[in-house]
Protein backbone atom coordinates (compact mmCIF):
# COMPACT_ATOMS: atom_id res chain seq x y z
CA UNK A 1 0.00 0.00 0.00
CA UNK A 2 2.78 2.43 0.81
CA UNK A 3 4.06 2.09 -2.76
CA UNK A 4 0.59 2.92 -4.09
CA UNK A 5 0.50 6.12 -2.02
CA UNK A 6 3.99 7.10 -3.11
CA UNK A 7 3.20 6.41 -6.76
CA UNK A 8 0.06 8.48 -6.56
CA UNK A 9 1.88 11.43 -4.99
CA UNK A 10 4.57 11.25 -7.67
CA UNK A 11 2.06 11.10 -10.51
CA UNK A 12 -0.02 13.96 -9.17
CA UNK A 13 3.06 16.12 -8.59
CA UNK A 14 4.18 15.35 -12.11
CA UNK A 15 0.79 16.31 -13.55
CA UNK A 16 0.19 19.45 -11.48
CA UNK A 17 2.91 21.88 -10.51
CA UNK A 18 0.67 23.35 -7.83
CA UNK A 19 0.97 20.21 -5.72
CA UNK A 20 3.40 20.57 -2.83
CA UNK A 21 4.11 18.09 -0.05
CA UNK A 22 4.87 19.35 3.45
CA UNK A 23 5.39 17.55 6.72
CA UNK A 24 7.88 16.30 9.26
CA UNK A 25 10.71 14.26 7.73
CA UNK A 26 9.05 14.01 4.32
CA UNK A 27 12.14 15.20 2.43
CA UNK A 28 15.49 13.44 2.51
CA UNK A 29 14.19 10.65 4.71
CA UNK A 30 11.07 10.18 2.60
CA UNK A 31 8.78 10.09 5.61
CA UNK A 32 9.07 7.75 8.59
CA UNK A 33 7.12 5.18 6.56
CA UNK A 34 8.71 6.20 3.22
CA UNK A 35 5.45 7.38 1.70
CA UNK A 36 7.33 10.31 0.17
CA UNK A 37 10.55 8.46 -0.58
CA UNK A 38 12.36 9.92 -3.58
CA UNK A 39 9.89 12.78 -4.09
CA UNK A 40 12.29 15.48 -2.92
CA UNK A 41 14.99 14.18 -5.26
CA UNK A 42 12.49 14.28 -8.15
CA UNK A 43 10.66 17.50 -7.41
CA UNK A 44 13.07 19.55 -5.34
CA UNK A 45 13.17 21.04 -1.86
CA UNK A 46 10.71 23.77 -2.78
CA UNK A 47 7.91 21.27 -3.41
CA UNK A 48 8.74 18.59 -0.84
CA UNK A 49 9.40 20.42 2.37
CA UNK A 50 10.73 19.23 5.71
CA UNK A 51 8.80 21.28 8.22
CA UNK A 52 9.72 22.34 11.75
CA UNK A 53 8.23 20.03 14.35
CA UNK A 54 4.95 21.83 14.99
CA UNK A 55 1.73 20.29 13.75
CA UNK A 56 -0.32 23.45 14.29
CA UNK A 57 1.72 25.53 11.89
CA UNK A 58 2.15 22.64 9.47
CA UNK A 59 -1.60 22.51 8.97
CA UNK A 60 -2.11 26.27 9.45
CA UNK A 61 0.51 27.22 6.89
CA UNK A 62 -0.94 24.56 4.59
CA UNK A 63 -4.15 26.59 4.62
CA UNK A 64 -2.16 29.64 3.57
CA UNK A 65 -0.40 27.71 0.82
CA UNK A 66 -3.77 26.65 -0.52
CA UNK A 67 -4.98 30.27 -0.36
CA UNK A 68 -2.00 31.31 -2.43
CA UNK A 69 -3.06 28.99 -5.25
CA UNK A 70 -1.14 25.81 -4.44
CA UNK A 71 -2.58 22.36 -3.69
CA UNK A 72 -0.78 21.18 -0.58
CA UNK A 73 -0.61 17.62 0.66
CA UNK A 74 0.19 17.71 4.35
CA UNK A 75 1.61 14.71 6.13
CA UNK A 76 0.80 14.45 9.81
CA UNK A 77 3.30 11.88 10.97
CA UNK A 78 0.73 10.13 13.19
CA UNK A 79 -2.90 11.00 13.73
CA UNK A 80 -2.18 10.68 17.45
CA UNK A 81 -0.36 14.02 17.12
CA UNK A 82 -3.26 15.56 15.28
CA UNK A 83 -4.47 17.13 18.50
CA UNK A 84 -1.60 19.61 18.28
CA UNK A 85 -3.20 20.77 15.05
CA UNK A 86 -6.81 20.12 15.95
CA UNK A 87 -7.73 23.79 16.21
CA UNK A 88 -6.43 24.38 12.70
CA UNK A 89 -8.15 21.31 11.27
CA UNK A 90 -11.47 21.50 13.08
CA UNK A 91 -11.97 25.26 13.23
CA UNK A 92 -10.04 26.52 10.28
CA UNK A 93 -9.54 23.95 7.51
CA UNK A 94 -13.10 22.71 7.71
CA UNK A 95 -14.68 26.17 7.78
CA UNK A 96 -12.74 28.49 5.56
CA UNK A 97 -14.99 28.04 2.52
CA UNK A 98 -18.05 28.61 4.69
CA UNK A 99 -16.62 31.57 6.56
CA UNK A 100 -15.63 33.31 3.35
CA UNK A 101 -18.99 32.54 1.70
CA UNK A 102 -17.27 30.48 -0.95
CA UNK A 103 -14.58 33.02 -1.80
CA UNK A 104 -11.78 30.76 -0.61
CA UNK A 105 -11.76 27.12 -1.45
CA UNK A 106 -9.41 24.80 0.34
CA UNK A 107 -7.97 22.11 -1.91
CA UNK A 108 -5.75 20.43 0.62
CA UNK A 109 -5.23 16.89 1.75
CA UNK A 110 -4.03 15.89 5.19
CA UNK A 111 -2.54 12.42 5.06
CA UNK A 112 -2.03 10.64 8.32
CA UNK A 113 -1.40 7.08 9.43
CA UNK A 114 -3.59 5.87 12.26
CA UNK A 115 -4.63 2.75 14.08
CA UNK A 116 -2.58 0.18 15.87
CA UNK A 117 -1.09 -3.24 15.60
CA UNK A 118 2.54 -2.43 14.91
CA UNK A 119 3.89 -1.98 18.46
CA UNK A 120 4.50 1.75 18.19
CA UNK A 121 5.39 3.86 21.23
CA UNK A 122 2.55 5.50 23.16
CA UNK A 123 0.15 7.92 21.49
CA UNK A 124 0.94 6.82 17.93
CA UNK A 125 -1.84 4.31 17.38
CA UNK A 126 -5.19 5.78 18.36
CA UNK A 127 -8.05 5.56 15.90
CA UNK A 128 -9.34 9.12 16.23
CA UNK A 129 -11.46 9.24 13.07
CA UNK A 130 -14.68 10.08 14.93
CA UNK A 131 -13.30 13.45 16.05
CA UNK A 132 -13.02 14.40 12.42
CA UNK A 133 -16.27 12.95 11.15
CA UNK A 134 -17.96 15.27 13.64
CA UNK A 135 -16.44 18.22 11.80
CA UNK A 136 -18.68 19.57 9.00
CA UNK A 137 -16.72 20.78 6.01
CA UNK A 138 -14.03 18.13 6.24
CA UNK A 139 -14.16 14.93 4.23
CA UNK A 140 -12.71 11.80 5.78
CA UNK A 141 -11.53 8.81 3.79
CA UNK A 142 -9.84 5.62 4.99
CA UNK A 143 -8.74 3.15 2.33
CA UNK A 144 -8.20 -0.53 3.13
CA UNK A 145 -6.53 -1.71 -0.09
CA UNK A 146 -3.59 -0.54 -2.12
CA UNK A 147 -5.86 -0.03 -5.15
CA UNK A 148 -8.12 2.27 -3.16
CA UNK A 149 -5.19 3.96 -1.46
CA UNK A 150 -4.01 5.21 -4.84
CA UNK A 151 -7.42 5.96 -6.30
CA UNK A 152 -8.85 7.67 -3.22
CA UNK A 153 -5.73 9.77 -2.74
CA UNK A 154 -5.93 10.93 -6.34
CA UNK A 155 -9.63 11.77 -5.84
CA UNK A 156 -8.84 13.60 -2.59
CA UNK A 157 -6.14 15.63 -4.31
CA UNK A 158 -8.49 16.46 -7.17
CA UNK A 159 -11.23 17.61 -4.80
CA UNK A 160 -11.66 21.28 -3.95
CA UNK A 161 -12.77 20.26 -0.47
CA UNK A 162 -10.28 19.56 2.30
CA UNK A 163 -9.85 15.85 2.86
CA UNK A 164 -8.41 13.97 5.82
CA UNK A 165 -6.92 10.88 4.28
CA UNK A 166 -6.30 8.19 6.87
CA UNK A 167 -3.78 5.48 6.19
CA UNK A 168 -3.79 2.19 8.10
CA UNK A 169 -0.49 1.92 9.94
CA UNK A 170 -0.78 -1.82 9.94
CA UNK A 171 -1.77 -2.02 6.29
CA UNK A 172 1.20 -0.04 4.96
CA UNK A 173 3.28 -3.11 4.21
CA UNK A 174 0.81 -5.89 4.99
CA UNK A 175 -1.71 -4.89 2.34
CA UNK A 176 -0.72 -6.03 -1.13
CA UNK A 177 -3.00 -6.02 -4.12
CA UNK A 178 -2.86 -5.15 -7.80
CA UNK A 179 -2.46 -1.46 -8.54
CA UNK A 180 -2.59 -0.18 -12.13
CA UNK A 181 0.37 1.94 -13.21
CA UNK A 182 -1.75 4.66 -14.76
CA UNK A 183 -3.58 7.42 -12.90
CA UNK A 184 -7.14 6.72 -11.82
CA UNK A 185 -9.52 7.88 -9.14
CA UNK A 186 -11.88 6.07 -6.79
CA UNK A 187 -14.87 8.31 -6.05
CA UNK A 188 -15.25 9.65 -2.52
CA UNK A 189 -18.39 8.31 -0.89
CA UNK A 190 -18.82 4.95 -2.60
CA UNK A 191 -18.30 1.87 -0.45
CA UNK A 192 -16.80 -1.37 -1.71
CA UNK A 193 -18.38 -4.76 -1.15
CA UNK A 194 -15.23 -6.56 -0.08
CA UNK A 195 -17.02 -9.88 0.09
CA UNK A 196 -20.57 -10.70 -0.87
CA UNK A 197 -22.77 -12.61 1.58
CA UNK A 198 -26.36 -13.13 2.67
CA UNK A 199 -26.63 -13.73 6.44
CA UNK A 200 -25.02 -10.71 8.02
CA UNK A 201 -23.45 -7.39 6.99
CA UNK A 202 -20.07 -6.73 8.61
CA UNK A 203 -19.07 -3.08 8.23
CA UNK A 204 -15.44 -1.96 8.56
CA UNK A 205 -12.93 0.53 7.17
CA UNK A 206 -9.18 0.83 6.96
CA UNK A 207 -7.14 -1.91 8.68
CA UNK A 208 -10.26 -3.53 10.16
CA UNK A 209 -11.42 -4.59 6.70
CA UNK A 210 -8.69 -7.19 6.57
CA UNK A 211 -9.75 -8.55 9.96
CA UNK A 212 -13.36 -8.62 8.76
CA UNK A 213 -12.46 -10.50 5.60
CA UNK A 214 -10.48 -13.13 7.46
CA UNK A 215 -13.29 -13.56 9.98
CA UNK A 216 -15.78 -13.90 7.12
CA UNK A 217 -13.68 -16.69 5.65
CA UNK A 218 -13.78 -18.62 8.95
CA UNK A 219 -17.48 -17.96 9.38
CA UNK A 220 -18.11 -19.26 5.88
CA UNK A 221 -16.61 -22.55 7.00
CA UNK A 222 -19.10 -22.53 9.88
CA UNK A 223 -21.91 -22.07 7.39
CA UNK A 224 -22.43 -18.33 7.92
CA UNK A 225 -22.41 -16.11 4.85
CA UNK A 226 -20.97 -12.71 5.71
CA UNK A 227 -21.12 -9.62 3.49
CA UNK A 228 -18.13 -7.42 4.26
CA UNK A 229 -18.51 -3.72 3.48
CA UNK A 230 -15.41 -1.57 3.22
CA UNK A 231 -16.74 1.94 3.73
CA UNK A 232 -13.69 3.62 2.13
CA UNK A 233 -15.09 7.01 3.03
CA UNK A 234 -16.73 8.09 6.30
CA UNK A 235 -17.74 11.51 5.02
CA UNK A 236 -19.36 11.40 2.55
CA UNK A 237 -21.00 8.22 3.74
CA UNK A 238 -22.51 5.75 1.29
CA UNK A 239 -25.84 5.35 3.07
CA UNK A 240 -27.43 3.83 -0.01
CA UNK A 241 -24.80 1.11 -0.26
CA UNK A 242 -25.14 0.26 3.42
CA UNK A 243 -28.92 0.14 3.22
CA UNK A 244 -28.84 -2.09 0.18
CA UNK A 245 -26.73 -4.64 2.01
CA UNK A 246 -28.69 -4.52 5.26
CA UNK A 247 -32.01 -4.97 3.48
CA UNK A 248 -30.54 -8.14 1.99
CA UNK A 249 -28.99 -9.63 5.15
CA UNK A 250 -31.14 -8.26 7.98
CA UNK A 251 -28.24 -8.39 10.44
CA UNK A 252 -25.41 -5.94 11.08
CA UNK A 253 -22.11 -6.04 12.93
CA UNK A 254 -19.83 -3.02 12.96
CA UNK A 255 -16.12 -3.44 13.50
CA UNK A 256 -13.78 -0.61 14.46
CA UNK A 257 -10.50 -0.10 16.25
CA UNK A 258 -11.65 2.99 18.09
CA UNK A 259 -13.30 2.85 21.53
CA UNK A 260 -17.00 2.00 21.68
CA UNK A 261 -18.64 5.14 23.03
CA UNK A 262 -19.08 7.89 20.48
CA UNK A 263 -17.18 5.89 17.86
CA UNK A 264 -18.22 6.10 14.23
CA UNK A 265 -20.12 2.83 14.75
CA UNK A 266 -22.68 4.77 16.79
CA UNK A 267 -23.39 6.97 13.79
CA UNK A 268 -23.77 3.93 11.56
CA UNK A 269 -26.24 2.28 13.91
CA UNK A 270 -28.34 5.40 14.18
CA UNK A 271 -28.38 5.73 10.41
CA UNK A 272 -29.18 2.08 9.72
CA UNK A 273 -32.07 1.87 12.16
CA UNK A 274 -33.53 4.98 10.61
CA UNK A 275 -33.14 3.74 7.04
CA UNK A 276 -34.16 0.11 7.45
CA UNK A 277 -35.34 -0.66 10.97
CA UNK A 278 -38.01 -3.07 9.78
CA UNK A 279 -35.51 -5.12 7.80
CA UNK A 280 -33.49 -5.86 10.92
CA UNK A 281 -33.81 -9.30 12.42
CA UNK A 282 -31.53 -8.66 15.38
CA UNK A 283 -30.01 -5.80 17.34
CA UNK A 284 -26.96 -4.31 15.63
CA UNK A 285 -23.73 -5.19 17.40
CA UNK A 286 -20.46 -3.31 17.64
CA UNK A 287 -17.12 -5.02 17.90
CA UNK A 288 -14.71 -2.32 19.04
CA UNK A 289 -11.93 -1.43 21.42
CA UNK A 290 -13.02 -0.81 25.03
CA UNK A 291 -13.61 2.69 26.39
CA UNK A 292 -10.01 3.05 27.52
CA UNK A 293 -6.98 4.91 26.20
CA UNK A 294 -4.88 3.04 23.70
CA UNK A 295 -2.54 0.84 25.75
CA UNK A 296 1.19 0.25 25.42
CA UNK A 297 2.13 -1.98 22.49
CA UNK A 298 2.70 -5.12 24.52
CA UNK A 299 -1.02 -5.51 25.19
CA UNK A 300 -2.46 -3.94 22.05
CA UNK A 301 -3.52 -7.33 20.70
CA UNK A 302 -5.89 -7.56 23.66
CA UNK A 303 -7.28 -4.13 22.81
CA UNK A 304 -7.87 -4.20 19.04
CA UNK A 305 -10.66 -6.60 18.00
CA UNK A 306 -9.06 -9.64 16.36
CA UNK A 307 -10.35 -12.32 14.00
CA UNK A 308 -11.30 -14.75 16.77
CA UNK A 309 -13.38 -12.15 18.53
CA UNK A 310 -15.14 -11.10 15.35
CA UNK A 311 -15.90 -14.73 14.47
CA UNK A 312 -17.33 -15.43 17.92
CA UNK A 313 -19.47 -12.29 18.13
CA UNK A 314 -20.82 -12.49 14.58
CA UNK A 315 -21.59 -16.20 14.98
CA UNK A 316 -23.44 -15.48 18.22
CA UNK A 317 -25.41 -12.69 16.53
CA UNK A 318 -26.49 -14.91 13.66
CA UNK A 319 -27.34 -17.90 15.88
CA UNK A 320 -29.36 -15.84 18.33
CA UNK A 321 -31.58 -14.56 15.54
CA UNK A 322 -31.67 -17.61 13.26
Amino acid sequence: MIEAIRECLGQEMEADKRVVVIGEDVGVLGGVFRATDGLQARFGKERVVDMPLAEGVIVGSGIGLAMSGLRPVIELQFLGFGHQAFHQIGQQVARLRYRSQGRHSLPLVIRSPFGGGVRTPELHSDAFEAFYTHTPGLKVVAPATAYDAKGLLAAAMESDDPVLYLEPLKGYRLTKDEVPDERYTVPLGKLRVARAGTDVTLIAWSAAVNVAERAAEELFEQGISVEVLDLRSLNPLDIEGITESVVKTGRVAILHEAPLTGGFGSELIATIQQECFYNLEAPIIRITAPDTPYPLGGVEDLYIPDVDRVVAEVAALVKASA
Binding site: V20, E46, G56, V57, V59, G60, S61, G62, I63, G64, L65, A66, M67, S68, G69, L70, H87, Q88, Q91, Q92, L96, R99, S100, H104
Partner: peptide
Protein backbone atom coordinates in the same frame (compact mmCIF):
# COMPACT_ATOMS: atom_id res chain seq x y z
CA UNK B 1 -8.01 39.25 2.46
CA UNK B 2 -8.96 36.26 4.57
CA UNK B 3 -12.11 36.36 6.69
CA UNK B 4 -11.90 37.98 10.11
CA UNK B 5 -10.57 35.63 12.74
CA UNK B 6 -12.23 35.11 16.08
CA UNK B 7 -10.07 32.23 17.28
CA UNK B 8 -7.13 34.34 18.35
CA UNK B 9 -3.78 33.66 16.68
CA UNK B 10 -5.19 30.93 14.40
CA UNK B 11 -4.75 33.33 11.48
CA UNK B 12 -1.01 33.72 12.00
CA UNK B 13 0.05 30.31 10.56
CA UNK B 14 -2.31 30.93 7.65
CA UNK B 15 -0.70 34.28 6.91
CA UNK B 16 2.71 32.63 7.05
CA UNK B 17 1.70 29.89 4.63
CA UNK B 18 0.05 32.39 2.31
CA UNK B 19 3.19 34.53 2.19
CA UNK B 20 5.39 31.51 1.68
CA UNK B 21 3.11 30.26 -1.12
CA UNK B 22 3.13 33.65 -2.89
CA UNK B 23 6.89 33.66 -2.75
CA UNK B 24 7.11 30.05 -3.97
CA UNK B 25 5.07 31.02 -7.04
Amino acid sequence: MLPMQISLAAQIPQATGLAWGLKMQ
